[in-house]
Computed example of a mutant assay.
Amino acid sequence: MPKQAAVSVHDPLILLARQAVNCFIREAEIVAVPDPLPVEQREPYGIYVSLIKAGKLRGCVGHVRPKQSSLAKEVIYTAIAAAVNDPRFSPVMIDELEQLSYVVDVVEHLALLKNIDAHDPNIAGLRVVRGRNQGVVLPNASGITTFEQQRQLAYQRAQLTLDTPATLERFQVRRIIELSGNYQLTVS
């Protein structure tokens, strides 16, 4: 079932991502996990955090499976990584902070891809895995309109040739977009 993007100004996950990046860039510190932790942020989830500047991707990092003990902690560490560890971009500078908008994708329903014909890249993401190699393409990625395009990009990101046998997994995301006028509906 497709999930619609929640466009929000004050979503707690967006606010937490922004706070984490601002604190890390301005003070070189990691913001504390909220206490008490809201119930909806206690369970671990895989997430992706995208930073958008002037309508263009400025950083995106994440994992389909959680690496931290809670969603809140995952948002903090993933947002910081998107700001300073995306190898496609230089680290975010302090003078850029006010220009950034945030997108948080909470990964849901990760499962083996069983029916390629029913796979819609606008609704479902794709993960290609072979050993330690993996490539992920989020749903509704910019320029991706077919399963084959999504598969090719996932294989490329996994550094695999298209004829290499690999496990294909599909997933959906609950996309939360900061309403600022400075975002894009698709991510890369």
Rank of each mutant, 00 (worst) to 15 (best):
M1R: 08
K3R: 13
Q4A: 14
V7F: 15
S8Y: 09
V9N: 04
V9I: 09
D11S: 04
P12Y: 08
L13H: 01
I14N: 11
L15N: 08
L16A: 02
L16M: 00
L16H: 01
A20T: 00
V21H: 08
V21G: 09
C23P: 00
F24N: 12
I25K: 07
R26N: 14
E27G: 02
A28Y: 04
A28K: 15
E29D: 04
I30M: 07
I30Y: 06
V31R: 05
P34R: 15
P34H: 11
P36I: 15
P36D: 09
L37D: 04
P38S: 14
P38R: 15
E40T: 15
R42S: 13
P44K: 07
Y45C: 05
G46S: 00
I47E: 04
I47N: 14
Y48E: 00
V49S: 04
L57V: 10
R58D: 11
R58F: 09
G59A: 09
G59P: 11
G62I: 02
G62L: 01
H63V: 02
R65F: 08
K67P: 09
Q68E: 12
S69M: 06
L71Y: 07
L71I: 06
L71C: 13
A72G: 05
V75K: 06
V75A: 05
I76M: 03
Y77D: 11
I80Q: 03
I80N: 09
V84L: 13
V84M: 09
D86L: 13
P87L: 10
P87S: 12
R88V: 11
F89T: 15
M93G: 02
I94Q: 14
I94S: 14
I94A: 15
D95S: 13
L97A: 06
Q99F: 07
L100N: 10
S101R: 10
S101C: 13
V103R: 08
V104W: 14
E108N: 08
E108I: 01
H109V: 00
A111D: 05
L112W: 11
K114Q: 06
K114R: 14
N115F: 05
I116P: 00
I116F: 06
A118C: 06
A118M: 02
H119I: 02
H119Y: 12
A124P: 02
A124K: 01
A124D: 00
G125P: 08
G125I: 01
G125L: 03
L126N: 07
V128T: 05
V129T: 13
V129P: 04
V129H: 10
R130G: 05
N133T: 07
Q134W: 06
G135K: 03
G135T: 07
G135I: 05
V136M: 04
V136N: 00
V136P: 09
V137T: 03
L138E: 05
L138C: 02
P139N: 03
N140G: 00
I144D: 02
T145G: 04
T146P: 11
E148M: 08
Q150T: 09
R151P: 01
R151W: 15
Q152F: 03
L153N: 07
L153Q: 12
A154V: 03
Y155C: 11
L160V: 06
T161R: 04
L162P: 10
T164W: 11
T167C: 07
T167A: 11
L168F: 12
R170A: 01
R170T: 03
R170W: 01
R170P: 01
F171Y: 07
R174C: 03
I176R: 13
I176K: 12
E178Q: 12
G181H: 12
L185T: 07
L185K: 03
T186A: 07
